[in-house]
């Protein structure tokens, strides 16, 4: 169920790398855990991010979750559709519910992330 070409963080962000850019979002597990998303706070384009820096927050009715940058780089685009339709994150977390695109500064941190199968195992561990 989790795309094979994605990598995942322990905080439930996913990242899909394409050359020197990466797309970032939150996992299906994360969106289910949050419930109906009502608001997404996104960083400005041009923001420089370090690994694990807070890039924004996602709010549901009764919870707030911070989104952390899975890699170092610079924000080149944010998903403007989320402003009017935050529910996209619930409907399609791995596709049209993406959060931002970044130009990677270096790929060092990416190796530490989990592949889809490892992430699924990690989730199983959480449920116990």
């Amino acid at each position: 169920m989790y795309p094979q070409d994605f990598k995942f963080t322990k905080d439930h962000e996913w990242v899909k790398v394409d050359g020197d850019t990466a797309v970032v979002g939150i996992s299906d597990f994360a969106q289910k855990h949050l419930g109906d998303v009502v608001f997404v706070e996104l960083p400005a384009v041009g923001t420089k991010l370090a690994v694990h820096q807070t890039i924004g927050t996602i709010e549901s009715v009764k919870a707030v979750s911070e989104v952390f940058s899975p890699a170092a780089g610079e924000v080149v685009e944010t998903n403007s559709a989320l402003a009017d339709a935050p529910e996209t994150i619930n409907q399609d977390p791995h596709g049209t519910g993406w959060i931002l695109k970044m130009k990677l500064a270096d790929r060092g941190g990416l190796d530490a992330l989990m592949a889809a199968t490892d992430y699924e195992k990690y989730l199983e561990g959480l449920e116990h």
Partner: peptide
């Protein structure tokens, strides 16, 4: 009541 709609 639809609290999600109220917040969105």
């Amino acid at each position: 009541l639809d609290e999600t709609a109220a917040a969105r």
